[in-house]
Design a protein around this nucleic acid. Structure first.
Lengths: 240, 240
DNA sequence: TAAGCCATAAATTTCGATATTTTGTTGAAC
DNA sequence: GTTCAACAAAATATCGAAATTTATGGCTTA
């Protein structure tokens, strides 16, 4: 776990601390897009954003350009930037590809993970469990912390796969999925018996049962997808 | 093939024609990185680049920021941009993940591809074959055209997979691989009996033999990887 | 209704100012 | 003589503001 260049809490790629205004803007806007605070498909008016994030044009555009590379924003010729739109079709796609990537990474991680991996998985699982109990009792403001812990937990599981590219792709898809989850219902996952699913995955992974762990992971994704899909459909019915 | 927003010849993401200076710089620098004209790991000095590509700072930085998102450049705090470095370890990783993605996309494409897909595959295969014959005879300057046709051919094969994310990932990995291929030997693939491999893949794909097509694709990747690996090793021996 | 035109809004870019890193030099300590 | 720290100078990256270019929406006219 010698990581000079680890990730910064949420899915923020790059340096731990933002050394430049562009970095800082990138991280904040990224968070806001993933969280849905910047509406999917909405126009990103430059001048408004300079005020909202308190930066000049140059660092702002640089931040947005990075987000385009992350598929969280889209750019069009002389017409500016938009928040990347969401669609049910894309969500299905994301879920399917995510299954492919996650299971492959999981398998490799289980096969190659050492004691440090096991320890990291246990720790992140405990952290997550703690926050779930907290969340269960009082409908708390612990949600952001839970979301963060959930991310870390899933990262930890595949961290030993030894494939930077699998990890990169997995992370991208996780962020994309997260956008849908947050839009469709701000709590969803926390309510569901997600904890049991996590527990089962951890057990299978730590006892090196590759196939079982992969199956459970896919199930986990499918269940999450079901909730999101339903919520999105309900949303559409409401609008109609 | 109704593509308002197709790719632009080489692997250039985004609009067909560059509508802004930043777009233009992005495309040119991207080409140069993939082609190895900007050396892997080398520093990208801003002022030098403004002259080389004849743009100002802002569009230049914007272009580089996009390339960071593409994993073709890296950025560090107040220290600027570098061309993303190459390493044998990463090449192995890329090849492995590429196998996963390509075969999945191939399978879906074969299962779902219609007449238009078949036609597109045939056309791109013919284009490629033509250029290969041309290249075989006289050691021509047709190499860039061959590289382009090769890209299009592999794109066409998986174009019907119906998964934008598989296509996106595949394209990223293709570009990454291309960097290694071009570094290791400017001709390589063209010399090898790559044509026979392509022919076999096309036949299997068009006769809807999923497993066979996937196996051949993996073989194709592995063979290409062997050449690159050997060339890289030779390179290292030479330096030592 | 549709094409042309103008006014406004917005995106893009240039350019110079500012902040940071890198390089080179000096001098003191060992 | 070598190493190291402190410092200054140069190189470089970053940023902000205003000029420029392009799109947008409303209005007129055919």
């Amino acid at each position: 776990m010698s990581d000079e260049q680890a990730e910064g809490g949420n899915g923020t790629k790059g340096a731990i601390v933002a050394k430049t205004l562009a970095d800082h803007a990138y991280q904040r806007i990224r968070r806001d897009i993933v969280a849905g605070k910047l509406a999917p498909g909405s126009k990103l008016r430059l001048e408004a954003l300079t005020k909202r994030y308190d930066v000049g044009m140059s660092p702002l555009r640089e931040a947005l350009a990075r987000l385009v590379g992350d598929a969280l924003a889209v750019i069009e010729g002389q017409r500016g930037f938009w928040v990347a739109p969401l669609s049910i079709a894309e969500f299905e796609d994301i879920t399917r590809v995510r299954g492919l990537i996650e299971t492959e990474a999981m398998q490799l991680s289980i096969e190659q993970g050492g004691p440090d991996w096991e320890a990291a998985v246990r720790v992140s699982y405990e952290d997550l469990s703690k926050l779930e109990r907290k969340l269960k009792k009082k409908s708390d403001d612990a949600l952001p912390a839970w979301e963060d812990a959930n991310r870390r937990f899933h990262e930890a599981l595949v961290a030993a796969c030894g494939s930077p590219w699998l990890i990169r792709f997995r992370s991208m898809l996780y962020d994309q999925s997260e956008r849908y989850r947050r839009i469709s219902l701000i709590r969803s996952a926390a309510d569901r018996c997600v904890h049991d699913e996590h527990e089962a995955i951890v057990e299978a992974a730590l006892s090196r049962q590759v196939l079982k762990a992969c199956r459970l992971t896919e199930l986990h994704l499918r269940r999450t997808a079901d909730v999101v899909r339903e919520a999105l459909a309900a949303e559409q019915r409401k609008r109609a």
